[in-house]
Write a protein that binds this DNA or RNA. Structure first.
Lengths: 157, 157
DNA sequence: CATATTTGCTTGACCAATCAAGCACCGGTT
DNA sequence: AACCGGTGCTTGATTGGTCAAGCAAATATG
């Protein structure tokens, strides 16, 4: 950590500057266009898609709210509200958790699974077209590792 | 565009899958931690910082709402509201545009400039620590280009 | 030159996320 | 067995953004 009282720390290099600006743009634009592609195509916003997807990858197609929220990068209350939206569409059902009566499981219904299968190609195409396409020729493994490091934030110290 | 009636398009490779998931995490985590770092440090949220920064880089330290909104990746109304927040803190002033009486200029005040100078090191440190650090050894130029491509979204067709 | 259309910005209504407070249940203590 | 701190989730209030409608000035058109 540079001393905050040091008036002028080393500024970013032009490369770094360009990368940071571009990332800013991507972070802003990508979710929106992917969401727009999917909504236009299949009427399923990205957040809801992500929830369904995570549920579907589980053996029993069910998950505790806690865990689902973490996987969807959502706060617990955010997750509650997403599940409620999905529930009213009949794509998810909620069941009390057997081994802990405080807990709930979000359960993917057949309708939900159908919806997911239906939306999947659209999501896949959007991700390829909007993102992966631009990284042809890169070492994806290395890139993924770097992003995993950046995405694993240590708490603010 | 793949035919949507084609039931099963080619799924993502493990590499691609990992990259996409990691990017999802980064997009979610990075703005929050950087924002948190800065707010904890200097009480200036990222959106407002970005606005001040863009204003400061202009010769007269002023800009039309339109242009500023684009640079900040914000809708015009979002920009209006951000500027209002900044105005009430005295960091920005609004002046009618001389050559077009419909238009407004957001003008960085001295207080705003001071605030920016004060926050800059904190922002810089956060960006390095949270992001750039993890990309040492990468070809930043190539990476920046790829992100610029991904960030330049063609309208949904 | 009067009127219609377009442009630049603000405002109103809304929405999805957050945090903080609340409620119900669990598990360990005495 | 009555309590009590901790846990799992929901709910209320707020926030920061969006889109759509509105208004005023500019510009194009008959």
């Amino acid at each position: 950590m540079p001393d905050p009282s040091a008036a002028t720390p080393q500024p970013l290099s032009p490369d770094e500057e360009a990368l940071v600006r571009a990332l800013g743009q991507v972070m802003h634009v990508l979710p929106r266009v992917i969401d727009a592609d999917m909504v236009g195509d299949r009427q399923l916003p990205l957040t809801e898609y992500t929830a369904l997807m995570n549920l579907s990858e589980t053996p029993e197609r069910r998950m505790r709210m806690n865990e689902l929220a973490a996987l969807c990068h959502l706060s617990l209350s955010g997750m509650t509200r997403t599940i409620i939206r999905l529930e009213t569409q009949g794509l998810v059902r909620r069941e009390r958790c057997e081994e802990d009566a405080r807990g709930w499981n979000a359960v993917l219904t057949d309708a939900g699974f159908a919806r997911l299968t239906e939306s999947w190609p659209s999501h896949l195409a959007a991700v390829r077209r909007r993102f992966l396409q631009h990284f042809e020729g890169f070492d994806l493994t290395q890139l993924a590792l770097a992003f995993q490091r950046a995405g694993t934030a240590e708490p603010t110290d």
